[in-house]
Design a protein around this nucleic acid. Structure first.
Lengths: 124, 124
DNA sequence: ATATCTGTTATATCTATAGTATAACAGTAT
DNA sequence: ATACTGTTATACTATAGATATAACAGATAT
């Protein structure tokens, strides 16, 4: 699994790292039960500090994507609180769709875009 | 038009302010040609600094929602670069939909949620 | 002309967050 | 014992967010 970090991005490294791992799960590059590299190992690979990786892992745990184990490290374990996930998704979509409406993107076009992005993930 | 700022939020005030104005446009509470309060006036109403409002206005200008005029202040003026808007939307949706896929939300369910949020905006 | 309203720019200051650097601790495995 | 996990603590630097004054330039009404 490739992790790409843009050090010139205005997005925090630990946020980019979190997103990359979520992409990995969404595209089935990593699956339930797989374990991620240890915080020290991944920090070494990417070339960042251990604590930055730990921060990403801690957030992934809080958001229900991994479980942290002293023995095995970080293991992919999706917490399927679907109602919560739907609420979170709605919150995120409010800003996205408000922008879309302002830019004259209608409901049909939004659906089309959704399908395109879904296809991207299914292809991997 | 009501502006609600959560001072305990981890989201920056100028980002919240930008979003609220975008909501206002999306729900037709403010329209093309309307002008926003002056930076000093709005800062006074909300109880924040002038520069924070100015930062929000400057971003809204960069993103193509308002034009800034020395005479009239900030005026709603949508820059309809639709191709750009669609690309921006896709970028935003990648993270949102990756999360959704991880949480077992499928394409149909995503469409349903999109419709619900669209309805929210149409009602105002 | 004067006063007053715009956005704009320039400082300076404070605070919180991001990221790094060491170090140590507590489990767990070999 | 040794070596690996996550975890916690502390300290430091750099950057971003927010505030506080102040001043400038254009526009406008009186």
């Amino acid at each position: 699994m490739y992790i790409e970090i843009d050090f010139n991005s205005d997005e925090a490294i630990y946020i980019q790292l979190r997103n990359q791992i979520i992409y990995g799960i969404a595209t089935s590059k990593i699956q339930e039960g797989d374990n991620l590299p240890s915080v020290r190992e991944l920090a070494d690979i990417i070339g960042i500090n251990m604590h930055t990786v730990n921060k990403a892992y801690t957030i992934l745990k809080q958001e229900g994507y991994v479980k942290l184990d002293r023995r095995r490290g970080a293991v992919i374990a999706i917490d399927l609180n679907k109602l919560q996930a739907i609420e979170d998704m709605k919150d995120a979509l409010r800003v996205v769709l408000a922008k879309a409406i302002c830019k004259n993107i209608n409901c049909e076009e939004a659906h089309k875009i959704i399908n395109e992005v879904f296809d991207e993930f299914e292809r991997g």
